[in-house]
């Protein structure tokens, strides 16, 4: 039992970080119909900004983290929207999918060439001491990761539902034409979405990299899992992405511990196929309706 609790808690901790990435992914999808195949790399890159800050420039950790957040928001938020999404979106979803894939390769190879191919240790923000909860031994880091990610998702939801800007962002995502008529600056709202996505990716990066080490190839699995979490939970709902992320984190851990480690990677995929075939709008999602 205590082992199960342990597996469950560490699954939730990883899952909550997946959820952060999946939420950003969902937001960008809603606002700009962009399926971002570089999302995993967006999580990989900020950790390298921090490493450049601490190792190359010699900044203290907190300053490096803050600067990395700002740089990420500018580069993978604003520039991504201006230079990649805006010019390519009119020519269709598939072109944009390819462009984001190419961007993913670009970021991955750049991290490898300009920083290094080996996994780099990453400074932990929290103590990793084990603590004991009802017999389950969990690290402090896991618990804090879980609390922070959930807190951020709750804050984001409050922002989107309770503030004027947040509601305008939702309006712009749901029906840009009407939102524009009602005086919402749709372009700016879409830009905010990209900035928020970049900030979420950076935060996920700071939380997950101490566990996984900073490696140029981190994005590959992370990106895929975030998509799957978003789809399984429900593509058009933030809480869907949250549920999907947590579910995959927990199921992944349970499969690896109790069933099969070899086919561990297959589980989210099977889940994805089942959900898409049985309930395409996702577990929490509402049906978008579709033609044909």
């Amino acid at each position: 039992m205590s082992q199960f609790l342990q597996v469950l808690l560490s699954g939730l901790a990883t899952g909550s970080i997946y959820a952060l990435v999946a939420v950003g992914f969902t937001l960008v999808w809603q606002a700009a119909q962009t399926v971002n195949f570089a999302q995993g790399e967006f999580v990989m890159v900020p950790a390298f900004f921090v490493l450049v800050g601490t190792h190359v420039v010699g900044l203290p950790l907190w300053l490096a983290l803050a600067l990395a957040l700002v740089v990420s928001v500018v580069l993978i938020g604003a520039l991504f929207k201006k230079l990649v999404v805006e010019p390519i979106l009119p020519s269709g979803g598939i072109s944009l999918i390819i462009a984001t894939m190419a961007l993913g390769i670009l970021l991955k190879e750049s991290a490898k060439e300009f920083y290094g191919a080996e996994a780099q240790p990453f400074p932990a923000m929290f103590p990793t001491d084990p603590i004991n909860i009802f017999g389950a031994v969990v690290s402090m880091q896991d618990i804090l990761n879980l609390i922070i990610s959930l807190g951020v998702v709750v804050l984001l939801t409050l922002f989107l539902n309770r503030t004027r800007t947040g509601r305008s962002m939702q309006a712009a995502a749901q029906n840009p034409a009407v939102a524009e008529i009602l005086g919402v600056n749709v372009k700016r709202m879409v830009m905010y979405t990209f900035l928020i996505n970049a900030a979420l990716a950076a935060l996920a990066s700071f939380l997950i990299t101490p566990v996984y080490l900073a490696k140029f190839s981190n994005g590959e699995t992370l990106g895929l899992i975030a998509f799957i979490a978003a789809i399984v939970g429900g593509f058009n709902q933030i809480r869907g992405a949250l549920v999907g992320g947590l579910l995959i984190g927990v199921l992944d851990n349970i499969t690896a511990t109790y069933i099969t480690a070899e086919y561990r990677a297959a589980l989210p995929l099977v889940l994805l196929i089942i959900v898409i075939l049985v309930r395409p709008q996702g577990i929490m999602g509402t049906s978008e309706g579709r033609t044909v």
């Binding site: 979803g93 998509f227 799957i228 070899e262 086919y263 297959a266 995929l269 994805l272 898409i276 395409p280």
Partner: peptide, 28 residues
């Protein structure tokens, strides 16, 4: 068959998942 039910990016992900499953089977 999945393509009969889903379109666009959903189909992209189903086929992506299929590709990874084939890869895992070949490896394991």
């Amino acid at each position: 068959y999945p393509a009969l039910r889903v379109k666009g990016h959903f189909l992209a992900f189903v086929t992506l998942a299929f590709n990874t499953l084939v890869f895992l089977i070949l490896r394991n």
